Computed example of a mutant assay.
Amino acid sequence: MADIAFLRFANAFHDRLKDIGYSLRRAEHQWPDTDRAMLSRAINAKTLSAGNYLLLCEMAGLDPYAYLERPPHRRVTLKSIAEQMVTPSATRETEGAR
């Protein structure tokens, strides 16, 4: 399952604000769809909703796909299935007793 690398995004977002000369207060003023709490969460690598993440990427001119992390794809084969651990069967104390 893919996830957003919020730490990398936070660093890039912070660098972008510095590049354009925006403080959090100025960014909040220039980007009316944002608020200080949202901007603070972005700078501090906190989880953002998908909508807020995309909004901030758009406002800052960042590519949202640049911070998408995908785990390595693991191909399932008959061999990989055969090599999986299986719980060994065990005899039970009551087995066979009637």
Rank of each mutant, 00 (worst) to 15 (best):
I4L: 11
I4C: 06
A5Q: 09
F6T: 12
L7I: 08
R8A: 15
R8S: 15
R8Y: 02
F9A: 11
A10R: 10
F13A: 15
H14F: 03
R16N: 06
R16F: 03
K18C: 11
I20K: 04
I20S: 02
Y22I: 00
Y22M: 04
A27N: 02
A27P: 03
E28H: 03
E28M: 04
Q30R: 02
W31T: 01
P32S: 08
D33E: 14
T34M: 04
R36E: 01
A37T: 12
M38D: 01
M38C: 07
S40Y: 12
R41F: 05
I43M: 07
I43K: 15
A45H: 10
K46L: 09
A50D: 15
A50Q: 13
G51L: 07
G51N: 10
G51C: 00
N52A: 09
L55I: 04
C57P: 04
E58F: 10
A60F: 05
G61T: 05
G61R: 00
D63P: 04
P64I: 08
Y65I: 03
A66F: 06
A66S: 15
Y67L: 06
Y67D: 05
Y67T: 09
L68Y: 12
E69W: 02
R70H: 10
H73Q: 14
R74F: 06
R75T: 14
V76Q: 13
V76P: 03
L78R: 14
K79Y: 02
K79Q: 15
A82L: 05
E83I: 00
Q84L: 11
Q84W: 03
S89N: 05
A90H: 01
T91Q: 09
E93Y: 03
T94P: 00
A97R: 14
A97N: 03
R98I: 13
R98H: 05
R98N: 06
